[in-house]
Every structure is written in structure tokens, then in C-alpha cells.
Amino acid sequence: MAAQVKIRGKLKDGVAQVKSLMPHPMETGTQRDPAGNLIPAHYIDKVTCYRNDQEVLSADFGASVSKDPYFAFKVKNCAPGDVIKVTWVDNKGETSSGELVLK
């Protein structure tokens, strides 16, 4: 079970300023372990952000996004009580998400 997305944010003048951190190894597939074996590629390739189940932003990642990807974004027309959700899927089909209720 992949670790949850850590998500923080604040609401200012109807704009949600959100910061998210997705714990993930983001292996490129070119690194070797101490025994000299190639470590298979394992990285998040799709991130989707929702406001109250409506998609507002999405991202396609390559393996060259840093380990434990950090992603900050802003969403317009938000109100207190709105739920911002960030989900990801990696190249092995694993998935995880995190939620934030704006106040």
C-alpha cells in the first residue's frame, strides 16, 4: 500500500493555494543497486487534482521528476468547505491519494 499524499493549503480570495507531496521512489530504471543490478523503473506517471470530484488540473510525469514529488498548484473559484483531492497512478498501476478540506 503506497503512502498517502501529504497535502496542505489555504484559501485566499477564492483561490486555493495547495502544496502536495507524494512519497514515492521515482526510480528511473537506469540506477543500479549496490550489487550492480539495474533497479526497474518505478515512477508516478499521472497526477490528477480534483475540487469536489471535478477535475481541475492534471499532470503527466516522466521518471525525471524528483523522488517524493512535490507539486504546488492554485485553483480558482473555491469556497470554504470545498474538498481538494490529489491522486496519482504509477507505471506499475499502484495508486494513492490525499484530501484537504478548505477553510
Partner: peptide
């Protein structure tokens, strides 16, 4: 080795203002 790092799709409800970290 693969120059494309990340691509963000911005809907009309999102602001074109993003931050991330790359290798």
C-alpha cells in the same frame, strides 16, 4: 536522457502557476 520531465494540464478553473522539483 528523456528530456521531457513533466506536463501539466491546466483547466479553466486552475491558475497557470505551478511548482515542482525535477532531476
Amino acid at each position: 536522457p528523456n528530456p521531457l520531465s513533466a506536463s501539466f494540464n491546466i483547466s479553466p478553473d486552475a491558475i497557470a502557476d505551478i511548482s515542482t522539483r525535477v532531476k
